[in-house]
């Protein structure tokens, strides 16, 4: 386990301009580690979508990224409203984002499906009124 690097980030809910900073930092770190560009892009997109989701839906949250020689594990935890119907939330095009978020370029209902697409494994657990945890894995080998 000594080869595993753990990074932790707090996503704020009050500044849209800063949403995506954590994903950007992780992307830079992965580049410094000379990981293959395809792996870096998968992690960057999946995490960025998650980070934006936290901003839009959950009043922010915490992201933990674990980088080991074989995989990158991204855990997104929030204490937001939770997801009532996960199947519906995973459907491409379904969104509960308000109009002001659409005017910022997000809320097309592609976030969760895209996170699933860009990760090799994804699990989601959610309790209404308690929060949501999404775990995504991208395999390196």
């Amino acid at each position: 386990m000594s080869n595993t690097i753990t990074l932790k980030y707090t996503v704020s809910s009050d500044d849209f301009t800063r949403a995506g900073e954590a994903s950007s930092t992780v992307k830079s770190k992965l580049k410094q580690m000379n990981l293959p560009p395809e792996i870096i892009r998968k992690v960057a997109i999946a995490m960025y979508e998650g980070e934006i989701n936290m901003f839009i839906h959950a009043n922010g949250g915490e992201i933990t990224v674990e980088i080991s020689p074989t995989e990158i594990v991204i855990v997104l935890e929030d204490k937001g409203p939770g997801i009532e119907n996960i199947t519906q939330a995973m459907t491409a095009g379904f969104s509960t984002a308000p109009d002001n978020i659409r005017s910022l370029g997000f809320g097309a209902g592609m976030g969760l499906p895209n996170m699933k697409k860009y990760s090799d494994e994804m699990s989601l657990s959610s309790n209404v009124g308690v929060g949501t945890t999404v775990t995504m894995k991208v395999f390196i080998k």
Binding site: R41, Y48, L104, F106
Partner: peptide, 15 residues
């Protein structure tokens, strides 16, 4: 035609 910081972030993530 969108003009906010997330346009730059999106372009960054997509290389």
């Amino acid at each position: 035609g969108l003009c906010n910081p997330q346009v730059i972030r999106t372009a960054e993530m997509m290389d």
